[in-house]
Design a protein around this nucleic acid. Structure first.
Lengths: 282, 282
DNA sequence: AGACTGTATGTAGGTTTATAACTAATTATA
DNA sequence: TATAATTAGTTATAAACCTACATACAGTCT
């Protein structure tokens, strides 16, 4: 936990004078780390030992040590926290906010992922003879992206963003089929139906969705991205980005598992694309 | 630049004694920030003022100030730098690496964006009577995503990931049309052709692409995401994520510009979707 | 109610720490 | 070789920090 959060969390435990110190620090942490204990004490209108005690209460060795910790809290130039966009934000502000929110979410997604699950997913994908990526709405573009990636691996891959096609497709599943379903909530009826149908036809279902959701019920393997989202006003942006990065991870795992020789192959596909481009030097 | 990097970079400029100090600090930065100037001097076998001069040489006010800077360098628990995946990385490692790389890229993209350009783009989008999103390959999913988003705004929006359809579509452009082209390199021939064609038919072209690329030439407005990418082995992952977030930014700007009343409308679209979901409590 | 106990805060003084000023030594330069 | 410039160390001082002690206040027990 960052020092600033820690201060906020302990606000009620502090005594009157200590709270004064906390207020001053929270007011302007940047200037706090550049102040001496004397100046800080003066600004907070308390005595120097009070400041010192305040520091110790936060499990630091003393004031200099506290400053060090505080400095580290402030180090992340931008405080990647979830800051919601407000009605009167200018372009500068909302751009920053959206990027920062996305980054914060990616970070939390990163920490919530279980490498073991990733590994299993890669296992399943490697062994399958047919990979299907399905998504609806916002998740459709994630599925498309996955298709695009795995298509380059020269793997039989299909992708549908249409419920009927998805249903028809899974009916032809075999036990060598892997169906990857993208759904943030895991509560989209038709998606759950597709999962059910796929299972009934022996396919292996990987659900990239919320833990404990109906879709998760029907999945052989669930990869959950715990991305807390304020889904009320704005659309699920961050969750989709996290899903995309997850696809990158799976694709990378896939590539690595296939070994060196296969990576050469990747370069070939890549260079095939190059011919349709303007050459940079000409 | 981080303090540690700065020290490494200046290693040759330092004098003999200063280098001793640098070595000790680089050896164990963590312990350095917890040492007093005296102990550090002793460990480095130099005098205290030498340490002080060392600090000043690195543009800090003195030793305490230096420690603060150093502490901040070490703060970033995870060093969001571009760490490439290696052949023998395990799931844990490559997952972390990919997420961190993506985050690092988003951060650099965030910093490279010009809010003024964003604002202009939103202006253009707001005023247009017809928005087209075009992308090929990996960028196609970004275009789809943009379509999905703007479709919810009840705006006439089209999206094609097929060259012929794109060409046919832009031929019918008017001066009220805005064509948004996604291309990481800006060097895909057919994309550039579409841009050219669009301009010839009075459409306004927004290129989400590299500065100084052929595509940028034909764009009325270029939004460039300076995402340095090692495009050699793995596919352009990060750039695509940055593009997606950019779409979020544009969509948000769009929404904000339309004002409160319109945001209510968004909720309606949203609730229409809700009916196709399982209810959480049942 | 009055003494007692414990917590909260401040004062004073001493210790540590950092820096300024100065000096000696070394290196470079004319 | 003499002189200037750079480098590093010594001494001195001031600033910062912390300990120990003292006071004030609140709650508790007799």
């Amino acid at each position: 936990m960052s020092m600033l959060e820690k201060i906020i969390q302990n606000l009620e435990i502090f005594s009157k004078s200590e709270k004064k110190v906390a207020d001053v620090i929270l007011e302007s942490p940047q200037s706090a780390i550049h102040s001496s204990i004397a100046t800080l004490a003066k600004v907070a209108d308390v005595s120097e030992p009070t400041v010192n005690r305040f520091c110790r209460r936060l499990d630091t060795k003393g004031y200099p040590d506290f400053k060090l910790h505080l400095a580290q809290s402030l180090a992340n130039g931008t405080p990647y926290v979830n800051r919601n966009v407000e009605a009167n934000d200018g372009p500068e502000v909302y751009t920053q906010k959206i990027f920062e929110t996305t980054i914060a979410h990616l970070d939390s997604a990163k920490n919530s992922l279980d490498p073991e699950v990733i590994n299993k997913a890669v296992d399943l994908l490697i062994q399958s003879k047919q990979i299907s990526f399905f998504g609806l709405g916002a998740s459709a573009s994630v599925a498309r992206d996955a298709e695009n990636k795995f298509f380059r691996f020269n793997v039989p891959v299909i992708c549908f963003d249409d419920i009927m096609m998805q249903r028809m497709s899974v009916i032809n599943s075999t036990e060598d089929s892997v169906v990857v379903l993208f759904s943030h909530t895991g509560r989209t009826k038709s998606m759950v139906d597709v999962a059910k149908l796929a299972r009934e036809n022996d396919a292996i279902v990987i659900g990239i969705t919320a833990q404990d959701s109906p879709l998760a019920e029907y999945s052989n393997l669930v990869i959950s991205l715990d991305v807390l989202e304020d889904t009320d006003v704005y659309m699920p942006m961050a969750s989709r980005v996290a899903q995309l990065v997850l696809v990158d991870v799976l694709a990378t795992g896939f590539t690595l598992r296939r070994g060196e020789k296969f990576r050469e192959n990747l370069k070939k596909v890549k260079s095939a694309i190059k011919d349709s481009r303007f050459n940079k030097i000409d």
